[in-house]
């Protein structure tokens, strides 16, 4: 394959950074790539990365769709907190929290509530014409309050074997949270790339007015992406709370909206809307999770962890910028036509 074409591929630099991160882990802990079978499930650092990425992948998927229409959704973290809080509250009220049926109902109820929140966001943006950043800011702030009211400001603990499976369980030795995220990715790819929906999304993001004049129901599509984003965030919230069998309405999904936006940007989707890359966003989410795990596993001192992450992200963003590459690497090439 042509090397320059490879270098120019949109996802070349994110993949390169991920490889470097994984490789640097190997230097510090030599069993980093070891995957063993522990109590009948897969166990290892790579499995941790897959498992821990799941909530961010879900949120980033929704965010990708929203951003592709030129919008943004700041409320995903709060929606995560609400869905986890509601699920834990309802499970706490069950007479038998270990029976599968009622727990499934609870999970359904939590996701249904999130759909309502998605509709609310979509309504504000598409029908009332409020700027997305403001429209979703309302739910971002108020939503956390709702979650705190549901949990009474306490950490709600639940003891439910079926609920635990969502975030901490394994199916055929594979983490369930990873399977959920993978299914969501597959669903999103199928819906956007196997139908005309992806094209419609990009067209709405490119120009809502032109799309409407071309006969696309831009309003309906806009509402739909916010519903998608909220539903995915709801599932992410369930994974998050199920992982530790408790609902912490303060910490759940705190600042995840920013990580999700970062994942989308790393993946090469422009914040201005239009073309989007699902693979890129997933990759971005995995990079961010790997970065978190690497910081701990390499032993970056607590005080400098944020700096470490920032430096990696800046390097990645600069490497992705064609202008920057031309300015820096251009100097090393034979051509000296560029004035200093």
């Amino acid at each position: 394959m042509n090397l320059t074409a490879l270098l120019r591929h949109r996802l070349f630099w994110p993949i390169a950074v991920l490889v470097v991160l994984l490789a640097s882990n190997l230097v510090f802990s030599n069993n980093f790539f070891t995957i063993t079978l522990q109590d009948g499930h897969l166990y290892g650092s790579l499995i941790d990365i897959l498992r821990r990425s799941a909530p961010l992948v879900l949120v980033a998927l929704g965010m990708t769709l929203v951003i592709s229409t030129g919008g943004i959704d700041l409320s995903v973290g709060s929606v995560m907190a609400i869905s986890g809080a509601l699920a834990c509250l309802l499970i706490g009220d069950l007479s038998n929290p270990d029976s599968v049926g009622p727990v499934l109902l609870v999970v359904g109820a939590a996701i249904a509530l999130c759909l309502v929140f998605g509709l609310w966001n979509g309504f504000l943006v598409a029908v009332l014409g409020i700027q997305p950043i403001i429209a979703t800011l309302i739910l971002m702030v108020a939503g956390r309050g709702v979650a705190q009211l549901i949990t009474d400001g306490q950490i709600l603990n639940v003891h439910s074997a079926p609920y635990r499976v969502v975030g901490a369980g394994y199916f055929l030795a594979v983490p369930v949270s990873f399977l959920i995220a993978a299914a969501a990715v597959a669903l999103t790819v199928a819906v956007t790339r196997r139908t005309a929906l992806g094209l419609l999304l990009e067209s709405v993001g490119g120009s809502p007015t032109a799309s409407r004049l071309a006969g696309i129901r831009a309003r309906r599509i806009t509402i739909m992406v916010y519903v998608f984003a909220a539903a995915f965030a709801g599932v992410a919230g369930l994974i998050y709370s199920s992982d530790v069998s408790s609902a912490d309405s303060n910490a759940a999904g705190n600042l995840i909206e920013l990580n999700a936006i970062l994942a989308v940007v790393i993946g090469g989707t422009a914040l201005t809307g239009g073309r989007f890359s699902i693979a890129g966003s997933v990759l971005g989410a995995v990079i961010i999770t790997t970065l978190d795990i690497t910081a701990v596993s390499v032993g970056v001192p607590v005080e400098t962890t944020l700096l470490f992450k920032a430096v990696v992200v800046i390097i990645l963003c600069l490497a992705q910028s064609a202008t920057f590459r031309a300015k820096v690497f251009g100097r090393f090439s034979a051509k000296r036509t560029v004035p200093a």
Binding site: F28, S29, N31, F32, G44, S45, D48, R52, I155, Y240, D243, V244, S246, D248, A251, A252, D292, I293, V296, S297, V298, G299
Partner: peptide
């Protein structure tokens, strides 16, 4: 927090 405590401990156990 519980979540971060769990996540960091998971990594400690491996590294």
């Amino acid at each position: 927090t519980r979540t971060d405590g769990k996540a960091v401990m998971e990594t400690f156990l491996k590294s």
